[in-house]
Nucleic acid binder design. Sequence first.
DNA 1: GATGAATGAGCGTTCATTCAT
DNA 2: AATGAATGAACGCTCATTCAT
Lengths: 204, 204, 204, 204
Amino acid sequence: MEEKRGGQKYDAILQAAVKVFAQKGFHRSRVSQIAEQAGIGDGTVYLYFHNKEDILVSLFQERMTDFVYHLRRRLEHTTTFYDTLKILIHYHFEVMEFNPDQAIVTQFELRQQNADINEGISPYLRKYFRIIEEVVDRGKKQGFVKQDIPTVVARKMIFGTIDEVVTDWVNCNCTDFLKEMTEIVYQLLIYGLLDSKASERGNL
Amino acid sequence: MEEKRGGQKYDAILQAAVKVFAQKGFHRSRVSQIAEQAGIGDGTVYLYFHNKEDILVSLFQERMTDFVYHLRRRLEHTTTFYDTLKILIHYHFEVMEFNPDQAIVTQFELRQQNADINEGISPYLRKYFRIIEEVVDRGKKQGFVKQDIPTVVARKMIFGTIDEVVTDWVNCNCTDFLKEMTEIVYQLLIYGLLDSKASERGNL
Amino acid sequence: MEEKRGGQKYDAILQAAVKVFAQKGFHRSRVSQIAEQAGIGDGTVYLYFHNKEDILVSLFQERMTDFVYHLRRRLEHTTTFYDTLKILIHYHFEVMEFNPDQAIVTQFELRQQNADINEGISPYLRKYFRIIEEVVDRGKKQGFVKQDIPTVVARKMIFGTIDEVVTDWVNCNCTDFLKEMTEIVYQLLIYGLLDSKASERGNL
Amino acid sequence: MEEKRGGQKYDAILQAAVKVFAQKGFHRSRVSQIAEQAGIGDGTVYLYFHNKEDILVSLFQERMTDFVYHLRRRLEHTTTFYDTLKILIHYHFEVMEFNPDQAIVTQFELRQQNADINEGISPYLRKYFRIIEEVVDRGKKQGFVKQDIPTVVARKMIFGTIDEVVTDWVNCNCTDFLKEMTEIVYQLLIYGLLDSKASERGNL
DNA sequence: GATGAATGAGCGTTCATTCAT
DNA sequence: AATGAATGAACGCTCATTCAT
């Protein structure tokens, strides 16, 4: 076992875990099921992970690290706030749509009020938050985003909206085409709900 | 047991459950802990609830029914979309801030991928969603909300944003004043991120 | 469950435990076997004992408390060191012979190098040691026992000899009549190995 | 594996085992710990021993064979019963004191009610018993030891006493000087507890 | 011979639920 | 209705042992 993280078995376990967790939920999933799905012995799981929770946490860390890495690469060559935000939304939807099992786990199983799980997950989620906040800040500098909007609150709206769209999509058994939501979500975040003609018409 | 729902012990159990669930999380909570906290015997819990999950589900149903009832009453006398939306946001924050234990349970413990729990919760959550969607629809009729925004998507943004703000607040141990977020959240949802002068300046 | 120690189930578990421990040895014994032997459910064991080790320790504590109590009563009315010592030896053998299962557990399973077990057992074993030492001390005062023999060493010889006799008896599947060893052991401890005529004959 | 018994790795494993067993106790010791302590791979252990129990048993057999061999050599040139017994006691204490880890294992870990262990150990322990019994028998022939004392019982007293002294010494963390106990133990075994003047004084 | 990754049987313990009182 | 002692199914995890390299 030269390599733990990134090793063949390590990956197989994570891949098996997403499947099982997505199907049964974390608490109803059995370590033996994961092992079986991965085609290895029960005990082998514990050569690569400390315990069941560690599988869930590692799963998120691996995927989030990947997500953040590729997201950053995609955002590298964008210029305007508009492009950037749209690509961010699109990539988030794309990744989720590409791996519905992963999406299920992300939207449900990770939202646990469990110290170990939370501590393992939070730092990695915050990395994503930081990207969104950087996007907003850049938007401010470029004059696209209103200066008086607190960056953190803007991030909460952006992430909260995207996240809710994904949750609903998962709840509908991932039937719709998530990526097609990109444009409308983007428009809403940028322009808000208000019909600009309303003020002109004196409705305010 | 003349009365189940609404009976004295029934309420005592729910009240005890919020406390225990908030502190330990649903899966780490023991039925015996809830019984003790409620000052009753373990077996008595099962005179009022089918099982542990039923407690969590009933808890949400009760609170959500209350929430929806009072929210509707507050929204009854509002006229413009602006008032309505602001009151909705404010009331959501107010309720959460008033009962942090309830907030913790709502933001974490209810997000379970568990058939029984989900089926018990979804209908009641959808009642809230319907209110939000009605608000959006009314806003459209009044000409405040852009007609081409799908109501459901607008609801996702509104709820998603509010929900994310609450989640973050809970994650920060409920230290900030949540209600003070109302105005900024309201502004963001209505006007979006865009600095309107940007288009005039030709940044688009 | 009004009573734990001394309760009906508590005793049943201990009685079952001696039997199972004696047959299989502590480490090869299964809690489920003890429960079955006691005619109760597996979980019930844990209403009366903290864990498997606690059963072993409690077993020894109960039996040793009994042993010490009855031994003291028997020794109460003895006068000379001779009577006292003989009764002590006899009672030790009698108890062991009366309950071979208990004897097996005492001679083997309790000699564990395990902090929890040792800490639970030592204080109770020392109570017995104290009795032996008191007997020796009284013997000294009465002029029966040589003054220059350290009481503690005398106790080690007395207990060590009795204990070894019992161990050997257990190793021979408890076939001999243990109580019949009383006299010879007594003689040996009192007079030692030496043939007193030897010195007279100048063999020394 | 040209050589098993006596090979370099074989010895290394035994040496490592004493250390680990003494520290953790047989059941809490892990084969991997022994391997690590011996500086070899886990699997290598099984090239030299059948299983974990075999290590414990072999350990005892090796050490006991050595012990018996050297004890016999020391006793070869003694003449009187007195010398012989004293040397026996002294050598037993000396060996134990020289290797406290070995002593701990001998006093605790070997006293297992386990068929395999017992069967492996008994024959070797009996070799020691036989020596003691030979010493007693010779003592009888020489007229030092009372003829009517059954040799086996005498052996039980001798071994039981020595053994108990060692056990107590181990329980006190091997702090005292064990060898200094030789004389008093010897005196006790030879002359017994009785103050010979007592009978003269008519105390009997 | 030496290794150590892989195995999987095995078990102590928990705790939601029941039911006799 | 209320109790809480009793239950036993269920499972995460360990670790002695194996065997391909």
